[in-house]
């Protein structure tokens, strides 16, 4: 049993949106059979994003921090979107825990998007099926790529190393250690969905500067 997941370090994320654009690049464009990519800046965009970075100000000025918050499908261990699906299109893979949508079965009834507390599913307006993050399942097992390239596009693109990828069930993996050592947490644990993706919290970094004495000069 393994459970692949992303671990996102909010202490490092600078909100550059490289993960968003690389995700769109790998999963698109529409003309090549990918997800829709039209009218991004209309009120009701005709495009599909698996991953978005939102920005929040936490606290009150001047005691506040800007938090850049990337959010994609969390690949829950107990995904609420799977049992509600009437067609069986929404499913969780036993071998690696990735939650996927079978585009051949989906009828786009939107029920899974209602059942998901995180709002990470989007119907694709052109393919007319429900879509979501696949953890780049078509890339991470691709033997034609170099081994260090077999990671989700967003992880490879992140310039600050805020996105880690691995098996959270393997206690020796980089992601398990990061969760253990840096206080990794899940979103909305009250929902009982047991999200696989974890977030690493903001930390206060202090620089200790020792004043050099005049005598040493």
């Amino acid at each position: 049993m393994s459970q692949l997941a992303l671990v996102i370090d909010l202490n490092v994320c600078v909100g550059c949106n490289a993960c968003v654009t690389s995700c769109r690049e790998w999963n698109g464009p529409e003309s090549k059979g990918g997800v829709s990519d039209q009218k991004s800046h209309h009120k009701l965009p005709m495009d599909t994003f698996f991953n978005q970075v939102q920005t929040y100000e936490v606290g009150t000025y001047p005691k506040c921090e800007t938090v850049h918050f990337p959010k994609s499908c969390l690949h829950c261990e107990d995904p609420p979107c799977v049992p509600v699906c009437p067609t069986g299109a929404s499913y969780k893979r036993k071998e690696d825990g990735i939650v996927l949508v079978d585009y051949e079965k989906c009828i786009a009834c939107s029920y899974c998007s209602w059942a998901c507390p995180y709002g990470v599913r989007e119907p694709d307006p052109h393919q007319k099926v429900m879509t979501k993050c696949t953890l780049c399942v078509d890339r991470i097992y691709d033997k034609s790529l170099l081994e260090e390239q077999r990671k989700p596009a967003c992880v490879l693109a992140c310039p600050s190393g805020a996105r880690l990828f691995g098996d959270i069930k393997d206690s020796n993996s980089e992601v398990s250690k990061a969760i253990d050592e840096r206080g990794g947490y899940q979103l909305m644990p009250e929902c009982g969905t047991r999200p696989a993706n974890h977030y690493l919290p903001r930390r206060h970094n202090k620089a200790y500067v020792i004043e050099e004495s005049d005598e040493s000069l």
Binding site: F49, T55, V67, P117, R121, E122, P123
Partner: peptide, 30 residues
Amino acid sequence: LSAGTALGTRHLQIRQISQGVRRGSFNTSE
């Protein structure tokens, strides 16, 4: 649930600055 548990921040004073790169989305309409 609250924005605090949604983001996982202990501080409950949360103000949104950006909703992502798009003007609207399925999340804002549905």
